[in-house]
Design a binder for these strands. Structure first.
Lengths: 343, 343
DNA sequence: TGTTAGCACTCCAAGCAGGAGAGTGCTAAC
DNA sequence: GTTAGCACTCTCCTGCTTGGAGTGCTAACA
């Protein structure tokens, strides 16, 4: 069961060659391309052993061999070195983010995009914003006689705004008074947990003004719910087109139809949320429809709480090493951003 | 050149049959499927005439015939009746928008999505926001010792915000003073046209404080440019997968690579901006890469100014009638939204 | 004169055979 | 333990054949 060094080396060559070419690898090819000092025949013997051990598979007798799920597992567990991103790649990521992060959704969306771009596979980012935002203060900015702008700042320093209707003739002073009352009352509360009763308690005038009350409540509710929900961001679905595994349109459609269902994606991502970096290879995956794919997933946390999960999904023949290092780097990057947001 | 009724009828049948089946239509099929009271031989004669006139083409001798670009043009110009959307479809669109319009970008994005969904083709929406926004006022909201939130309100009632760095120890009073000075100076100006010099003129203290000055200027510049730009929203690129014309992955890739280039899309959309509804069939289109496609495009205006353009792109074999009625309906819907936003 | 039946013709698609190429497994020799 | 040699297998490509679908033409019919 334990592989000697030569077998390991050959297995690694087969895996890496197959990852880059997507063609079954034959003994002759190995002898020619890699200087092992071994004849094809010897390599053949070793390959035969590796097949018996379950590391290699033959699509048909006279094709070369391809790595089995088990081989990838072995490769991932004990053959890839940590690896860091090239400076070039790092610079690319840095620049990418620098241009794009204006609000929290953009951070996730950008992460999904750059992740897929760098790994040449489909990426998914689950933003787990539930319960993450606490009321800090709100202000009303003037707009016109009938409407005002409600600006809500949460403790993570993110600002939301929403146009609300106000009673005609309401003055800015009244609005300012109202905002400080509301702020006093709601400060520190989780946005998602703000109820109509809490708002009604602010002061009796507000509760009686149906229009104002409901437009404020609705605004808070909208802001709260739009941000407290979990959201999945998909990136690079068109990368599928470049993978030989997806030469045929029907396979692409099958996979896309799964990716379209947000609920399924959430389930998939939640399943791997507990471990730090999780690699699922082929049928190790329990979800139907992606069992011939592999997935590399990383969860990021802030103060122990799960903030989000990112994953790369693609054919089992994927560049695990590269993907892991890209994710590592993104992980750091995001942590920094969130830490700063917190301050 | 003028077609008699029978020829017209046969041409229409061929076009509509081909649109729905994507298979060349033969004389026998027509005789069997549609009750014309004519034998295949007669129909054949008519088809032969239609081919001579340039309305039909044969992929090869023993296939049926398919409509030429000219046939589609004729069909579009004189055979499709205006047509209204089914109530079902209308309700679908209404519900779709009701759930989704929270900010201006979402309106465009949602339009692209529903448009592609209902027409089963790729959609493009060009949001032409250039020059549309004028400075109304700005406010600074407190955040922490080193940072504040810049809230900018434009005359269309849209609020943007941005976190800026401020000198340590700057008080809210100072910020308020600053904001009113800036507002006085910049009110009414087009966001895109605000220069560093204008801001420097506000008052000398500001010009001297490099940090504050540059962070405010950068914020204004970001907000201005991010919104004054024209933006293209794409919808339903994956609809391509369902079109038999795109069975082969390489064709999809070719088209997608064009759709990825925002500049090209803008050119394409601008080209049809002047007419109300424009239909471009096959090689009528001047842009390389989409010359075997058709495009239906509609431009929407507000007070004479072009606000945006939407288009559906797909194989020449598309349901022109349906597409036009969907667009009509969306057009009305958007007009209403924008009119209201204006008020 | 318009319509239709009949028939030869064309072309594609599918199925099959044969050869080339790639790769394997086995055996015997080093 | 390693390697050369060789027979074997399987896919892929090519060329060939055949059946089906559709056409165009001609002659007969109303």
């Amino acid at each position: 069961m334990v592989l000697n060094e030569r077998k390991k080396r050959i297995l690694q060559i087969i895996i890496e060659d197959y990852i880059s070419t997507a063609e079954p690898v034959g003994s002759r090819t190995i002898a020619r391309k890699y200087d092992l000092g071994l004849s094809p025949a010897t390599i053949r013997n070793e390959m035969s052993d590796l097949e018996l051990l379950g590391f290699l598979e033959q699509p048909h007798t006279s094709a070369g061999r391809i790595p089995s799920a088990r081989a990838y597992r072995f490769y991932v567990d004990s053959m890839i070195e940590p690896g860091t991103l090239t400076e070039n790649d790092q610079a690319l990521i840095d620049a990418w983010y620098r241009e794009r992060i204006r609000n929290i959704d953009e951070i996730f969306q950008s992460t999904a995009k750059i992740l897929s771009r760098m790994t040449k596979n489909v990426s998914m980012v689950l933003a787990n914003k539930q319960g993450s935002r606490f009321f800090r203060y709100l202000k009303f900015l003037p707009l016109d006689g009938k409407r005002a702008i409600l600006c809500l700042v949460t403790d993570d320093g993110v600002v939301d705004n929403c146009v609300i209707e106000i009673p005609i003739g309401m003055t800015q002073e009244e609005l300012d008074y109202l905002s400080s009352r509301i702020t006093n009352k709601l400060q520190g509360f989780n946005l998602a947990g703000i109820t109509g009763d809490m708002l009604r308690d602010v002061y009796s005038d507000l509760a009686q003004d149906k229009l104002l009350f409901s437009s404020i409540f609705e605004a808070l509710h909208n802001i709260g719910s739009s941000n407290s929900e979990q959201k999945v961001f998909l990136g690079g679905t068109r990368q599928l087109l470049n993978q030989p595994e997806f030469r045929n349109v029907d396979r692409i459609k099958d996979l896309l139809s799964i990716l379209e269902e947000e609920k399924v994606l959430k389930d998939i991502l939640h399943a791997g949320e507990n471990s730090g970096v999780k690699i699922t290879i082929g049928s190790e995956n329990k979800f139907t429809g992606i069992q011939d794919c592999s997935m590399v997933q990383a969860t990021y946390r802030l103060n122990g709480r799960v903030v989000g999960t990112m994953a790369v999904l693609g054919p089992t023949r994927m560049e695990y090493g590269k993907i892991i290092s890209v994710m590592d780097y993104l992980h750091q990057y995001l942590s920094n951003i969130f830490e700063e947001g917190r301050k």
